[in-house]
């Protein structure tokens, strides 16, 4: 067994002239929840598909469960589970028919199929009759079933590509509970998401932009590193903040001012924090807040586009 679940070195994937993934390097430890965060088209899906053996690297190398692409990626495919961002179950087949087709693809014996579906339906808490057509299931249940089909062969590494897009908030919470349960059992989960609250639950986050890895760390470290200086939140409470904002922007102790909903987030030098805090006009509130992942995302990913 290799120490790392996934090891990626200078991985590059091109489609014609377009470079979707550009010299990506990282390693994922066993039992980790590893998140990919980035805008649409940042290369998250391409990276995941390559690691599942659905795409071939143009340059660089990747070892997944210690395996590469020498045999067309078949050995690798046997060790990982993949849940695409597209719904990959058959709408016009029943729950059972879908599971038994997934088992057939992996050449599982009928006994293994019976045992695993029993376990997995209990794991995802499936209550719908097993002869229900999948098209009649609710969105969240469909996603849980797709997860069950993806881990039917009990893979050690699981790749989830936006598993909760278009699913209700309650179903999202349920789904993440399942993900945590899996890693507690020693599975490695690599997941892409658009939701910041989901990214918070990852052990480490890889931030991607235009195919490149621009940051990789735990959520706490990312916040710490991106915002070493204090972050303040200005709430104008219905007043016009423009004059004050202009004063702030001219203040050499202020590093950055970003609109944040109806409020503003202000980054200041530690030495100027007190002075800035006390300069707030009457009727507005300015207070120190811990940075959120969204602040990090805005600063690192979107910030560079401006």
């Amino acid at each position: 067994m290799s120490p790392a679940a996934v090891e990626v070195m200078e991985l590059t994937v091109r489609f014609g002239d377009f470079t979707a993934v550009d010299r990506l390097s990282f390693a994922v430890e066993r039992g980790e929840i590893f998140g990919f965060l980035g805008a649409n088209g940042a290369g998250k899906t391409t990276a995941i598909r390559t690691l599942c053996g659905l795409l071939r690297p143009t340059h660089g190398s990747a070892r997944v469960a210690g395996l590469g692409y020498e045999d067309g990626g078949r050995a690798l495919k046997g060790r990982v589970g993949y849940m695409s961002q597209r719904f990959t179950l058959y709408d016009d087949l029943t729950v059972d028919e879908n599971m038994s087709f997934a088992a057939g693809l992996r050449k599982l014996s009928p006994e293994v199929l019976a045992r695993r579906t029993e376990e997995l339906f209990e794991f995802i808490g499936l209550t719908a009759p097993r002869n229900t057509l999948v098209r009649h299931l609710a969105g969240g249940i469909k996603q849980e079933l797709a997860l069950a089909a993806a881990i039917l062969h009990d893979p050690e590494i699981l790749f989830l590509d936006e598993p909760t897009s278009g699913v209700s908030p309650v179903a999202r919470i349920r789904f993440w509970k399942l993900i945590r349960n899996l890693t507690e059992k020693g599975k490695t989960v690599i997941v892409t998401t658009h939701y910041m609250d989901e990214a918070e639950q990852c052990g480490r986050i890889a931030l991607m932009r235009s195919g490149r890895l621009i940051a990789l760390d735990s959520p706490a470290e990312l916040k710490e590193r991106t915002f070493p200086e204090p972050l303040l939140e200005l709430d104008a409470q219905g007043r016009d903040p423009d004059d004050f904002l202009n004063t702030l922007r001219r203040n050499p102790g202020v590093i950055d001012v970003q609109p944040y909903g109806s409020r503003h987030h202000v980054t200041v030098r530690s030495s100027s924090e007190e002075a800035v805090l006390s300069s707030v006009p009457a009727g507005m509130s300015l207070r120190r807040i811990p940075p959120s992942l969204e602040d990090v995302f805005l600063r690192l990913v979107e910030g560079k586009d401006r």
């Binding site: 659905l54 078949r74 050995a75 695409s84 719904f87 990959t88 179950l89 997934a102 693809l105 992996r106």
Partner: peptide
């Protein structure tokens, strides 16, 4: 078209 092809090719098949 539906994306189910991705489940088939993610299995270790010739």
């Amino acid at each position: 078209e539906r994306g189910t092809f991705e489940m088939i090719i993610s299995a270790p098949l010739e």
